[in-house]
Every structure is written in structure tokens, then in C-alpha cells.
Amino acid sequence: MQTLVVERSEGVVTVVMSRPEKKNAADPTMWRELAETFTAVAANPDDRVLVLTGAGGDFCSGADLAGMSDDALAYMANAGEAARALHALAVPTIAKVDGVAVGAGWNLALGCDLVVATDRARFSQIFVRRALSVDMGGSWLLPKLVGIQKAKELAFFGDMLSAADAAALGLVTRIVSPAELDATVDSMATRLAHGPAQALSLTKQLLDAAAEGGSMELALRREGHAQANNINGVDAKEAKAAFLERRDAVFYRPAEIAGAEPASVG
């Protein structure tokens, strides 16, 4: 890896975008390495949670404009593959944000399930200031998260938002001090990694599918399919045994889940 640092510990995969001299602006190599890394996580049953962050006190300042080639369409296809691979992950994902998260960098963070930011983090759909339009899935994510009018305001003006401003819009899950960031995200990621992996994955799939539309009837059918998978799975049996034996359930068993096929909501 030329632009990323990838670390694994007890089911938690931490992906660090590491171009601190550019505030972790993404060049073509980083887009490719992000897509490859997300795809590898999807294929590894021992990877149960993904944390995405940046080196040097910033999350990501967007695309490195100096790294754009003359073939703009090919460049965007490369970047878009990273966004698609992140969105496709069935495991919980956490964006750990300090400093700037702007442009494509902010939309990478919004592509995660949870966003934990420091109180000094700053966010912007900065594209318009560069005479560019929204990318990295922002045109799809923003209206779903904040509604169409607020999405247009964010994209039309490209104003810089504080972490508190972003949280007020529902775009930040939790705000902490810089000193608390590592411990907070570590705690959240560890809880998720040691939780019932299939149930968490199916819950994510159910919520994502509902956010994309459909009826209550369709949601109920999906829920039934998902719950049947859970009831027949090893985690539900362990949860029941733990309840009857009055002990904590143990869901994190790397050796036992190796090679397991992920369940689907249908």
C-alpha cells in the first residue's frame, strides 16, 4: 500500500488514509487502494467492523486535483469504485473524523454507517468552489440524509460546517474532544466486533434497503427472511444459552466463523 495503512485487531479493520502532507487528499492510487481494501474486507469473514480515518490530524481534503488525468471519465470511474465498494460492505463502518472532511472526503465519511468527529472537525461540500459538481455518491447520500432542499443548499454554496452544525443536520453521530476520539471509536468498534455479526449485518441491510424505498409489506418480508436466518444461526443459540446460564454471550469466534457465507435479507 502506497497511500493507506491497514491494521487488523480482533475483528476491527482500521484503514488510515495516509497522505498527511496533502491533508490526505485522494489521488488515483488512493482511490484504487481504497476500493481494493474495501473489497478485501467484504471477502474476509474475520473482518467484522471497518474504521476509516486519516493521518496527521485530518480526515480527507477530497480529491487531489493535481492527480487528475486528462481522461476525467476514467478518473471518476476509479474514484467511484471506492464509493461503491464502501457502500456494498455488509459489516458496520465507522468514519473517525478529525480536522477537515471536505468534498469527496466528506462523502466518504457519509458513506459510512456512523460518523464520530472531534469538536474541531470541519465539513464542506466544497465542489462548487472548484467549479465542480458533487461526486463520491454525495448526490445520492445527501438527499436521503437531510432532504432535497438542505442537500441543495449544502451543494450550491459549499459552506464550511462545524462538527456541531453537521451534527444538528444528522450528519455526525457523535462529537468528542480530540483527546477522546481514539478511545471512543475503539470502544464502539470493539462492541460491534464482539456483537452478533450476522444480526448486525442483516440489520444494516434491512435499514439500508428501507432507506432506498419500498413498502411496509416488503420490509416485513425482508425482516422475516432475515430473522429466520438469525433464529437458525449459531449466534442466536449462543444468546439463548447465555441467557439461560446467566452469563455474557460470546459471539466473537474468529476460528469458527472462517469461511462462513454472509446471510442476506433476500
Rank of each mutant, 00 (worst) to 15 (best):
A40L: 05
G138D: 03
G103D: 09
V176D: 05
P92C: 06
D235H: 14
E81D: 11
N44S: 07
Q205V: 04
D186H: 11
R130M: 09
T3S: 00
T190E: 04
G54D: 00
A83P: 04
R19T: 06
L244K: 07
A193C: 00
M76V: 11
E256Q: 03
A155P: 07
P143T: 08
T93R: 10
V15N: 01
E33S: 05
G111R: 01
D235C: 08
F156A: 00
A104C: 11
E36L: 15
M1R: 13
A74D: 15
K96Y: 10
S9M: 13
T184V: 07
A77V: 13
A79S: 13
E212V: 02
L207E: 08
D186P: 07
A167E: 00
D71H: 01
L154M: 15
R32I: 07
N232G: 10
W106F: 08
G259E: 11
D27E: 15
W31V: 05
A258W: 00
V128P: 04
A168L: 14
Q2T: 09
I94L: 03
R253I: 07
L52F: 05
G214F: 04
A74G: 13
R120E: 08
Q149I: 14
L161T: 00
T14W: 13
A117H: 02
S18L: 06
M17T: 01
T118D: 03
N78I: 15
D186I: 12
A95S: 15
D165H: 13
V6N: 04
L206E: 03
L171D: 08
L220H: 01
A183K: 00
M1A: 14
I126G: 02
L154K: 12
M188Y: 11
T53N: 04
G195Q: 11
G138V: 01
G67Q: 05
M216E: 06
K144D: 03
A263M: 04
A210C: 00
S124R: 05
E10Q: 11
Q125T: 10
A263S: 00
A228G: 08
D119V: 12
L181S: 02
V172A: 03
F38A: 03
G11S: 06
A131H: 07
V49F: 00
A199M: 06
A43P: 02
V6D: 04
L169N: 09
K204A: 12
G80Y: 14
D235I: 01
G62M: 10
C112W: 06
W31A: 06
G266P: 12
Q2K: 06
W31M: 06
V172L: 04
